[in-house]
């Protein structure tokens, strides 16, 4: 893994908290500077998103067993399709644009090496010091998470964001909350490519401190843009633009296309 040294002149706005032997760290720095972007571009082999928080991360670790899971931008971008082999998305007006273009400047044939410029990632976090195994009886106990338990640490960390040249939004962010008896991490990839597609890929990581039970759930949702718009038809016209920017409003409107659940029991001897 390539690591990027955080600039020492800028303050880390992240947080640290340890609960029942589980240490939670968030790191929040400014976006990468041009030298860091250059280093990341050559390490990744693709141009990073326009807002790239390469020094941000969220890490949950259990010192006694050595188990840890970490979320950062580099890892997530490293699994983005770098060759366009999985089928390239095109902006809604691409065909029209290509037709017009051929009239004026047909001599330009040089295309930047194709890659998934929507930065869609299936990354679920880097696990070390243990292993999560796919399991049919793994599940996140949402009823426990609905309790208004005190939140000892909460943070919301953006890893990257791109406006797709005014064609929508691609964003990867991580939320974490630590309660006295458990914690929950939500890494969310949100893509809205206007006129084309909406995607939400959620990775949740749950830990129950007393039992050492750790569950990771990945849910991928996707829908055609027009289908999402149709489902918003009952809202006032003026509210629709802001609804279309809010993944919390859209998530339930998108059909699930993939779910995986894994678990591990983390103890002293894991």
């Amino acid at each position: 893994m390539t690591s990027f040294v955080a600039p020492t002149t800028v303050r880390d706005a992240g947080k640290i908290h340890t609960q029942s032997g589980w240490k939670v760290e968030t790191h929040k720095y400014p976006i990468c500077n041009s030298a860091e972007i250059e280093a990341m571009t050559s390490a990744l082999g693709i141009t990073p998103p326009e807002m790239i928080f390469g020094n941000n991360s969220v890490r949950v670790s259990h010192a006694a067993s050595g188990f840890a899971i970490e979320f950062n931008a580099f890892d997530a971008l490293d699994v983005v399709d770098k060759t366009g082999a999985q089928g390239m998305l095109k902006v809604a007006y691409s065909d029209e644009w290509q037709r017009m273009r051929e009239k004026v400047s047909e001599e330009i044939r040089d295309v930047v090496r194709p890659f998934d410029w929507s930065y869609s990632t299936e990354w679920k976090g880097r696990v070390s010091g243990g292993e999560l195994k796919e399991s049919s009886d793994a599940s996140i106990p949402y009823e426990k998470l609905r309790r208004p338990d005190p939140i000892l640490l909460f943070d919301d960390v953006v890893l990257y964001e791109d406006e797709l040249a005014d064609n929508g939004i691609a964003m990867l962010s991580v939320k974490i909350r630590v309660m006295p008896e458990r914690l929950l991490v939500l890494q969310r990839f949100f893509l809205r490519l206007d006129g084309v597609v909406v995607r939400i890929r959620d990775t949740r990581c749950f830990v129950e401190f007393a039992t050492g039970e750790c569950v990771r759930e990945y849910v991928s949702r996707e829908s055609k843009y027009e289908d999402v718009k149709k489902k918003l038809a009952m809202y006032p016209q003026d509210d629709i633009p802001s609804l279309m920017r809010d993944p919390n409003e859209l998530v339930e409107l998108l059909p699930i296309i993939e779910t995986t659940r894994e678990k591990a029991t983390i103890t002293m001897n894991a």
């Binding site: 095109k90 400047s105 295309v111 194709p114 040249a165």
Partner: peptide
């Protein structure tokens, strides 16, 4: 695009660098 000499098409299917 400082890596290039000429105009280049964006992988998005519209736009130039």
């Amino acid at each position: 695009d400082p890596e290039r000499d000429e105009f280049t098409l964006s992988p998005r299917g519209a736009g130039y660098t």
